[in-house]
Computed example of a mutant assay.
Amino acid sequence: MRPDDVPLLALLRQEMNFSSERQRVIANNVANANTPGFVAQDLDRAEFERTVSEVMSQRRSANGMRLRTTRDGHMSGTASADTSARTWSTQDTPDSETTINGNSVVLEEQMVKANETRMRYESALSLYQKSLGLIRTAIRTPT
């Protein structure tokens, strides 16, 4: 059994992949903060969420299996989605101001985005590691 066979782990990996790619785009923005005419870029989070939703629903209909929920508040289980190899498209997202030379990167705004992305990545990583730990504990033979 691969870790991606567990839906939660697959989703967490996708979140980490998306966050890594977003961090790369933000780093590129910061590196070009003084480049004349450079427009800040970012990844579209809505595109990421749409893609994950589509893949999850395709897998659910392909398998025809869902976990049974016993209460209205329970979430139904889904199959894993594989968007880890996907390259997310960047879009121009100028920051709040543009300099005289046409550069639209505001370092403070980029640092806020970088921090938000780092927190999302670290949260997903922590949940991933703890989930793997629980699985290891569950499959370990009693001593």
Score class of each variant (00 low, 15 high):
65 M>K: 09
65 M>G: 06
67 L>Q: 14
70 T>Y: 14
71 R>A: 15
72 D>N: 11
72 D>I: 15
73 G>P: 02
74 H>T: 12
74 H>G: 11
75 M>S: 12
76 S>D: 12
77 G>D: 03
77 G>E: 02
78 T>Y: 02
79 A>F: 10
79 A>H: 11
80 S>Y: 09
81 A>D: 00
81 A>Q: 01
82 D>Y: 06
83 T>I: 15
84 S>W: 08
84 S>Q: 13
85 A>C: 05
86 R>H: 09
87 T>R: 12
88 W>Q: 02
88 W>V: 02
89 S>T: 08
90 T>M: 06
92 D>K: 10
93 T>Q: 10
94 P>T: 02
94 P>K: 01
95 D>L: 03
96 S>Y: 07
96 S>A: 14
96 S>P: 03
97 E>M: 12
98 T>Y: 02
98 T>I: 10
99 T>M: 11
100 I>C: 06
100 I>G: 07
101 N>F: 11
102 G>I: 04
102 G>P: 02
103 N>I: 00
104 S>K: 00
105 V>A: 01
106 V>I: 11
107 L>N: 08
108 E>W: 07
109 E>H: 04
109 E>R: 03
110 Q>C: 05
111 M>G: 07
112 V>F: 06
113 K>P: 00
115 N>L: 15
116 E>D: 14
117 T>N: 03
120 R>W: 04
120 R>H: 09
121 Y>T: 03
122 E>P: 02
122 E>V: 06
122 E>S: 13
123 S>Y: 08
124 A>D: 04
124 A>R: 01
124 A>T: 07
127 L>K: 03
127 L>P: 01
